[in-house]
């Protein structure tokens, strides 16, 4: 009995010391005790695939094709002045009219919803560098990121299409965001940027008499 107990305690202590406790960190991949059909040969997003030469599952968009439901590459496929009731037109997608000029005004109807969308996307993608107020004082300024302020005449007078183009394709040190925002979202950000500009550059005379009274001017 004594030998048994000694062996028993030894095995228990050995198991606990080898396996450790719950929640302890490990660099080894999780043990799958009953693998069942946990890992199947199927296509998973962003996964590896030895079938293709470049080893990835996600295939690049073939040239002269439009990705279903995601037509960011539309201009690579269609002419500049292309227009379609479903795909929209290239002015909407690239912010330039057919003669290559930037469009003056946002080509979709401004609404409160669009402004909310713009605010949301601005907070995600722009505040880090340009700051919540668009003054170029984002949180990464201390690390040496240079970002433009929206509150100067150059950007106040710029066409909406120009702002859209910079958001899409970047400019100077800024990288484009068209892979992460749909055309509608980019136009929404343009709208929100205009609101930010107004917020820092409004005159009392821009308000109606009632609004001025309300604010006590």
């Amino acid at each position: 009995m004594r030998t048994f107990l000694i062996i028993y305690v030894f095995i228990v202590v050995a198991t606990v010391s080898i396996l450790g406790f719950r929640g302890s960190t490990s660099k080894k991949p999780p043990l799958e005790i009953f693998p069942d059909m946990d890992r199947q040969a199927r296509y998973k997003p962003q996964a590896e695939n030895q079938f293709f030469a470049d080893g990835r599952n996600d295939r690049p968009i073939p040239i002269n094709s439009v990705a279903r439901g995601n037509y960011h590459n539309q201009i690579e496929v269609f002419a500049e002045d292309f227009s379609d009731s479903y795909l929209g037109d290239t002015t909407y997608n690239i912010g330039k009219s057919s003669d290559g000029e930037f469009v003056q005004k946002i080509p979709i109807k401004a609404s409160n919803e669009l402004m909310q969308l713009g605010h949301l996307k601005y907070d995600i993608f722009c505040t880090t560098c340009h700051g919540a107020a668009g003054d170029g004082n984002g949180v990464v300024k201390q690390y040496g990121v240079l970002a433009a302020t929206y509150h100067d005449d150059r950007l106040r007078d710029a066409e909406d299409g120009y702002l859209y183009d910079v958001i899409s394709n970047g400019k100077g040190l800024m990288y484009g965001l068209k892979d992460r925002m749909s055309p509608k979202e980019r136009w929404a950000v343009v709208l929100y940027m205009r609101a930010l500009q107004t917020s820092q550059n409004a005159q009392a005379s821009d308000l109606s008499a009632a609004q001025r009274l309300d604010l006590g001017f």
């Binding site: 960190t25 490990s26 660099k27 080894k28 991949p29 043990l31 005790i33």
Partner: peptide, 26 residues
């Protein structure tokens, strides 16, 4: 004793609470 150890061991170790939690690869 042996059965208790096996039951407790399986309950404690044969679960994602042990196998997955804490996985922190380099």
């Amino acid at each position: 004793l042996v059965k208790t150890a096996i039951v407790l061991g399986v309950t404690y170790y044969f679960t994602p609470k042990f196998t997955r939690v804490g996985y922190a690869p380099t």
